Amino acid sequence: MRFITAIVAAAVAAVASAQTPYFPFSPEGACVAACTSTVGKTFFALYDDVDETGPFFLTSLAYTYERGSPTTIQFMTQAGTCMTPCPTAELDLYRAQYPLKLKWYQANKSASLRRRSNE
């Protein structure tokens, strides 16, 4: 199981290393990325918080940034527990970027709704 987790983490980290103007944030690291991906997929099989051009990117971010919802509380609790052994540098970057990503999500989440209404 740990081997699979390590492979998933490496793949997520490789994809996440591409920072773009659309989503201008640095990847927090392989451990944090593996936790959000693994936990996210327990809630939503198509969870993808890495590919900002993908159809489920904003939907996936909602699990982290729709504050106060029961699903977000569950997601954050499980992801936080998973992240406990992650390197301090990754956790520090996650904490530093969280409020910035939250603000970005709030400003951009309606794009997902517009996209769905045009389909």
Rank of each mutant, 00 (worst) to 15 (best):
R95A: 06
E90N: 07
L91F: 00
R116P: 00
F75L: 06
P99I: 11
N108I: 05
F56L: 05
F3E: 15
S17G: 10
Y98V: 13
Y22N: 05
A33Y: 05
A10E: 15
L91E: 00
S69A: 06
T53I: 04
Q78C: 00
R115C: 03
T84H: 02
V39S: 07
T5Y: 10
F57R: 04
F44T: 01
S69P: 02
A96Q: 14
E90P: 03
A14T: 14
A6Y: 03
G54Q: 07
P87R: 15
D92R: 09
T81I: 11
T42E: 15
Q74A: 15
D49V: 13
V32N: 00
A107K: 12
D48T: 08
Q19K: 15
Q106W: 14
A30Y: 09
S37A: 04
T42M: 09
T38R: 05
T38Q: 04
G29A: 06
L46E: 04
Y98D: 11
C31E: 05
Y98T: 15
F3A: 12
T59D: 09
M76T: 05
Q78W: 00
F23N: 15
T71K: 03
D49N: 13
M1W: 14
V8H: 08
V32E: 02
S69E: 03
C82A: 14
I7N: 08
Q19F: 00
F56M: 10
T42H: 01
V8E: 11
F3Q: 11
M76N: 07
A13Q: 11
G68W: 03
V15W: 10
